[in-house]
Design a protein around this nucleic acid. Structure first.
Lengths: 164, 164
DNA sequence: ATGACACTGTTATATTATTACACTTCTCGA
DNA sequence: TCGAGAAGTGTAATAATATAACAGTGTCAT
């Protein structure tokens, strides 16, 4: 299945900006950490950012194949692993899919709003939610190491589109 | 892989109680809803409760096979689907595994603390966390339909065991 | 230049989940 | 109580996601 068309302009927002910025940040971070953002890693990150929807490993793989990259599963999973380790992308457990991290470099768990209508994902940066979670873990004397918070439903734009 | 031994008594708690109670609740709920808790559905629920750890579909399948049940994947997935629909179990997206619901009948999303040491799962019933989540969704004009909250780390018992 | 390490290529396979279709059992109204 | 429709089950095949293992290649510091 080839991914849907990805217009650069959506809802008054030039997505090319995001892609460029994300790539620039990634390059900077990797340089700073002496990590190598190799062509396939870079391309995977780019593909993920180009999509307005989270992409599955095999969707990425198909795109890479079209572009002449090696296209066996380990290729993409290795790239994803690298990007995850460096906090450049997030994995959405409820979708088995991957999405760009909107604040790489800052240590954080991703909290997500996932619209099942348009399939877009919004990352929440929420100190108060984080604090609530931290408190609950603390009450149970639980040493928190990672968090998965994925909220699904219908986003405001899709709601508006239905109402009218 | 056969599942680990499942002692009935753990940490001063008679787990047989839990199993019996969960089964009794399930029977009552299904009766009330005119749903059929057939032998395979019932057995899957029982196996899930008997385990102190979440079980994967194929672990369940292996147990069913040993007991002479039909053991093709659809058997267990259908049972799981039924149990999920009736709120008798939860699926843990981060583990691809299933665990008993501690409050069936009450409408709720499951919030979980998952210990990666002992692999046990504790379900949080947390109105305040729920409220925090609801607020955040509301701020984004997001119509919330389902929530996945899975917190991983090390539970208090395992921490104690390490400290000493 | 060379040794160590990171990265990539390739094949195979593991794990989780679904589709499709035939058959059986249950339920409930005529 | 009969039979039609719905719900449940059996079975085979396959899809979708992810990992293992091992060989080969490139990179970089010494």
């Amino acid at each position: 299945m080839s991914p849907p068309c990805q217009p650069a302009f959506v809802a008054g927002h030039n997505h090319n900006h995001c892609i460029e910025q994300a790539l620039a940040q990634a390059v900077a971070l990797c340089k700073q950490r002496n990590s190598r953002l190799t062509p396939s890693r870079r391309r995977v990150l780019e593909l993920i950012w180009q999509s307005h929807q989270p992409l599955g490993a095999y969707q990425l793989l198909a795109q890479l194949a079209e572009e002449g990259f090696n296209s066996a599963p380990p290729t993409v999973y290795r790239a994803l692993e690298f990007l995850l380790e460096h906090g450049l992308i997030h994995r959405l457990a409820s979708l088995n899919a991957y999405t760009g991290c909107s604040g790489p470099g800052t240590q954080h768990s991703g909290y997500f709003l996932i619209c099942h209508r348009c399939n877009r994902v919004q990352e929440l940066a929420s100190p108060s939610l984080k604090e609530a979670v931290r408190q609950h873990a603390g009450q149970a004397d639980f040493l928190l190491e990672s968090e998965i918070i994925e909220l699904s439903g219908c986003c405001s734009q899709c709601l508006k589109a239905t109402d009218k």
